Simulated assay, not measured.
Amino acid sequence: MTTNISEINSPQKTPLIYKVLVIVSILTVVGGSLTGIMTYMNVGFTKHFYIDWLTSFLSAVLVMAPIGLIMITLINKLIAKLLPNTSELKRNLVISLCMALTMESLMAFVTATNNIGYGNIHVFLAGWLEGLLAALPIGLTIMIIMSVTIKPKMEKFLKS
Rank of each mutant, 00 (worst) to 15 (best):
N9Y: 12
P11N: 14
K13W: 04
P15F: 13
L16V: 06
Y18F: 15
V20E: 10
V22D: 03
I23A: 13
V24A: 15
L27M: 10
V29Q: 09
V29E: 02
G31P: 01
G32A: 09
S33C: 14
T35A: 02
T39A: 07
Y40S: 04
V43K: 03
V43W: 01
F45K: 01
F49D: 08
I51L: 15
M64Y: 02
I67Q: 05
L69Y: 11
I72L: 06
L74Y: 05
K77D: 12
L78G: 06
L82H: 13
P84Y: 03
P84W: 09
T86N: 10
E88L: 11
K90C: 09
N92Q: 09
I95A: 09
I95P: 00
L97K: 02
C98Q: 09
C98H: 05
C98W: 02
M99S: 11
M103H: 03
E104S: 06
A108W: 01
A112W: 07
N114E: 11
N114D: 05
I116W: 04
F124K: 02
A126L: 09
G127I: 04
L129A: 10
L132Q: 00
A135T: 00
P137D: 02
G139A: 06
T141R: 00
I142Q: 12
M143A: 09
I145D: 04
E155V: 14
K159S: 08
